[in-house]
Design a protein around this nucleic acid. Structure first.
Lengths: 250, 250
DNA sequence: CTAGTGTACTGGTCTGACCAGTAGGCTACG
DNA sequence: CGTAGCCTACTGGTCAGACCAGTACACTAG
């Protein structure tokens, strides 16, 4: 005891220092989306490392969704605007390796979507309300004819709600989880025998939610929203998990 | 028109194909955590690509938190058990480049934590209830003396609740966002003049939540939980955003 | 003024080399 | 015989230099 306590020295790889510096520049705003990094050959001079090191750093930055490079581009790598792609990727991985069940994913959506609706009921502008209405109108127009347009309109509705709720994190997470869920059961949804009936019921539910939002009744809107999601997805969830979903319906 | 419709060929980088194959092997369970990949030199033979390509692929896999490599290791890269590190990283980046406000983060926690508590009230076992109690006891023991232990016990409490709720995604997300929030305002929390009073109030709130969970009153527990979080963090959130947080307190 | 060609870059990939570090067998000593 | 210490054969990290295919842009010939 006594004497100085030495900490283990953490060896930092060269490429990591490159990543750190570029990341810092991007996140601090010194580099804005659309701007270009110097070329790899230029970077290797600036950082005085080899090109392999520069490239490994760029691969990491690309995996994090911060930059993109394209062969033949006379400029260097492009700084990307924010995109939830990296979040999407890591959540998809999460869903696979942590073995998230469909029930957990749907439950997560029920929670976040319910919250978004609750907030939207209080904060929405008339314009956002109109957007939601337009989305549902598009759903109705596409119901039974254009499967793809129906889905897109549904997404537009939920996105409008989430934006109205004013919480970007909720908005992004709902979107990410929604796309994971949809991908997971896309084939089963398309093959549902009572597909048209499901669509009609979904539209009705959406309209009820809009009405509650318009009326400013957040708790009601949230309940309706969770109920709508439950009705739409419960059929694809095992019975054991379904009861956990119902816990959110009270 | 007429004639075959050609799709644009998507050029796939060599390292991407390597990433895909290894990723698939890991996510499908063909490679389990703790197992080793072949060495880089062996991989370059198996994939018949150069070592640079192999290394770029490994960098990507490492950035996604799937593998880790260590210089001098006589084996190849190690397949890692699942960890939310990648999710954490991408959400932290998200918080910076998408300019998430503290209010949005706290609001997100209020929503998810409320949901976790609601579910826990219904699904908790006696054992989990005891864990929560132990965590609060630890908080009380550390209050005013050991700042760090207090924080750790707080985390343990919320983790026990989230686990009892039975939704791993909620559990992981709350944990990730919590650590981001804490990091964001760690200095301000530590410097709060009424620090001890805050701790005491926090403990009281936690006990009320436990009581509601024990009683099986999910909605009450959720309300109390959101209130507790609001009380603890509202002081660090700007007034404009605070009203959005209060929308969740009704 | 335009169509076409050149050219000088870019990123993607490969080869081959060296270094520092580790594990584990081997050897020499007690 | 047991063990301490060396030695070797690997590992990943980094570097240097090369080639290729692709792109943008200036230049040139019509």
């Amino acid at each position: 005891m006594g004497g100085p306590r030495f900490e283990p020295v953490r060896t930092v790889r060269a490429y990591e220092r490159v990543v750190e510096q570029v990341e810092e520049a991007i996140e601090s705003g010194a580099l804005s989306p659309g701007e270009r990094l110097p070329s790899e050959r230029e970077l290797m001079v600036q950082f005085s490392v080899s090109r392999s090191t520069v490239r490994e750093a760029l691969r990491v930055l690309q995996a994090r969704g911060l930059v993109r490079s394209r062969p033949g581009d006379p400029n260097g790598a492009e700084v990307l605007p924010f995109s939830p792609a990296a979040l999407h990727k890591s959540m998809t991985t999460l869903a696979r390796v942590a073995e998230l069940s469909l029930g957990e994913l749907v439950q997560f959506r029920m929670v976040l979507d319910g919250a978004a609706v609750l907030l939207a009921a209080r904060l929405r502008t008339e314009e956002q309300l109109a957007e939601m209405g337009a989305a549902v109108a598009a759903m109705r127009a596409a119901a039974g004819t254009d499967e793809e347009a129906f889905g897109a309109a549904d997404v537009a509705f939920h996105d409008a709600v989430a934006r109205a709720g004013g919480n970007k994190l909720i908005q992004i997470c709902t979107d990410v989880v929604r796309s994971i869920v949809v991908k997971l059961i896309a084939d089963r949804i398309a093959a549902a025998p009572d597909r048209e009936e499901l669509m009609r019921r979904s539209i009705r539910h959406h309209e009820e939610v809009i009405a509650a939002i318009r009326a400013g009744d957040g708790p009601l809107a949230a309940r309706l929203s969770r109920k709508a999601m439950y009705d739409y997805y419960a059929g694809y969830v095992g019975e054991g998990e379904r009861s956990a979903l119902r816990a959110l319906l009270e």
